[in-house]
Design a protein around this nucleic acid. Structure first.
Lengths: 203, 203
DNA sequence: GACTTTAGTCACAATAAGTGACTAATTCGC
DNA sequence: GCGAATTAGTCACTTATTGTGACTAAAGTC
């Protein structure tokens, strides 16, 4: 792990052989999103750096609980600080234990949601420390998108979006030229209405 | 009406002075989407040509009904055939009676959902008759997007997407040169030659 | 010092988008 | 009949965005 998205699973409460997405029932007077954040917090000890609703599912068939419908959320946490509590395990999103069809759909829609929001919310930046190199940032985007990006295009798009600003520090990472550190600093400089699109590197 | 999106409202069952989005409780063993389609069908006599879930809402505060959470859907029907039954009324989406904040949010998210799906699903084509002129099609896109499009660009994009095919018929619409009729006939050629906007499909 | 490795930039080609002006075919008023 | 008005359809040109390889820079390794 570390260069791929992961999904956090827990053993199903009914059938111990089965894995399932973490869930819980809502408590009265609580926002759905607040409930989702608590699910993550109970599993990881900290709230996600970003959450978004995926959708509501309910077709009268199998449910994780006995609830009429279930509302799924996706959230992201940086891998370093995300040590799961007992009963929870990270799996690579491309290679996880079998899930029910509905939960598989949720996982798939989750990655699509992430990738769709990537150019509209500062998701990648919150997954990194406050200062980072552009290579760090590019690798984070590649991890989240699941594909390689072209270096020059990535930086060009980044510059056009006025999202980062260099600071006067460099970091030497063993061999190779030291990289300049940057920080997230979205400029008021008329933000373009359209999202940022990075150039993909076709292998 | 006729050149703007409309929203179908009904008088609230509790307070007769208030308008609200049509709704109903789910019946057991029914998909959420099926329930949504039935809501539309009860109001209009026909199912929408396209439906999509907007999201689930539930924060312990005001609900349309007494349900814990409500799941909102958006659907589209062509205006010509969409004659509302008693108790339902169309309003221009830019000028409708006051709604609760949550329902206002639903309406707003509905238009964003439509516009986001417009280039991924054949929404516009299903709102038109099987054969149509390119001007018809452009007007439909303009209606759905809420903005004017440039004729030449629109046709160029259409051609690049291989979505329509001309048939050997022309329609004279009063004054002006007769327009050739087209029909929806998607991707006769391979689809993803780095084609339309969001097509990053590569092996 | 030559070689490897990572960072960072440049230049150019290819594609796509924005836009006005042009031609074509019809109806309308007279 | 004939020109103005009206709608359809296309072209050409400009500008912006994206794809891509090659280049320079600064470190470590041997």
């Amino acid at each position: 792990m570390g260069n791929e998205l992961g999904v956090l699973l827990t053993r199903s409460s009914s059938e111990r052989e089965r894995w399932s997405l973490p869930w819980r029932a809502t408590q009265g007077g609580e926002t759905l999103e607040a409930a989702a954040i608590r699910v993550a917090q109970d599993a990881l000890g900290e709230p996600p750096i970003w959450t978004e609703q995926i959708g509501a599912f309910g077709d009268g068939k199998r449910h994780p609980s006995d609830a009429e419908i279930s509302v799924a959320f996706v959230g992201l946490v940086p891998h370093e600080t995300a040590s799961p509590r007992a009963g929870y395990t990270w799996f690579p999103i491309g290679d996880h234990p079998p899930l029910t069809p509905r939960q598989r759909g949720m996982v798939e829609m989750a990655t699509r949601t992430i990738q769709g929001r990537l150019d509209q919310a500062p998701i990648a930046f919150r997954l990194l420390p406050p200062t980072f190199t552009l290579s760090d940032l590019q690798q984070m985007y590649e991890l989240l998108l699941g594909k390689r990006l072209h270096k020059a295009s990535f930086r060009r798009a980044l510059q056009a979006a006025w999202l980062v600003e260099p600071i006067d520090e460099w970091r030497s990472e063993g061999r190779g030229r030291p990289a300049q550190l940057f920080r997230y600093s979205p400029k008021k400089r008329r933000r373009s209405q359209r999202g940022i699109r990075f150039d993909f590197l076709y292998p």
